[in-house]
């Protein structure tokens, strides 16, 4: 709890402006790529470039509006909480990288065990929960719903 402060008016404005600046850059980059769309023939007067260019202009204008009136924001976490929040995509990254080579069971174990620990589960409970979830979901997807999942090298093909 102590790590989660309500953001101050100033920091909300800063978050708003930074987001607006990123969006403006994105709009410019998108517009730039749009000018280079390659096409031989279009059956309509607009062609494939005009609509994206219009969108780029619209997004750029809206970003400028947002920059000057940022409005309320929730604010980002900091300290240990931020590390925990960022831990989730990292665990997911590892699990997804393992998904095809090591198979569904291993990957799901990594994902559920890792996130359960980040959520503060006691290690032994997290372990039990992760093994249970891996087996349960494997059963549900493979036998009940008949969804194809990679078995991975460990469990044959």
């Amino acid at each position: 709890m102590s790590e989660h402060h309500e953001p101050s008016h100033r920091s909300m404005r800063l978050i708003g402006r930074a987001t607006a600046a990123c969006l403006l850059l994105f709009a410019l980059a998108y517009g730039l790529v749009a000018t280079a769309i390659d096409y031989a023939f279009a059956s309509d007067p607009l062609g494939p470039r005009v609509f994206p260019l219009g969108l780029a202009a619209m997004l750029a204008l809206l970003s400028v509006w947002y920059f000057f009136s940022p409005g309320p924001a929730e604010g980002y976490p900091s300290g240990r909480l931020l590390l925990r929040v960022l831990g989730i995509p990292l665990v997911m990254l590892a699990a997804v990288a393992l998904f095809e080579p090591a198979g569904f069971l291993v990957s799901t174990f990594v994902l559920t065990f890792g996130t359960a620990l980040i959520f503060g589960a006691p290690p032994f409970k997290a372990l039990l929960g992760a093994v249970g979830q891996a087996v349960l979901w494997w059963f549900v997807f493979s036998y009940v719903l008949e969804v194809y999942l990679p078995a991975g090298a460990l469990f044959g093909h």
Partner: peptide, 17 residues
């Protein structure tokens, strides 16, 4: 800690499938 990992598994499988 039991619920969120379940949501993430469903997300990965949903997209992959």
């Amino acid at each position: 800690w039991l619920l969120v990992p379940g949501i993430l598994v469903l997300s990965v499988v949903g997209v992959y499938s």
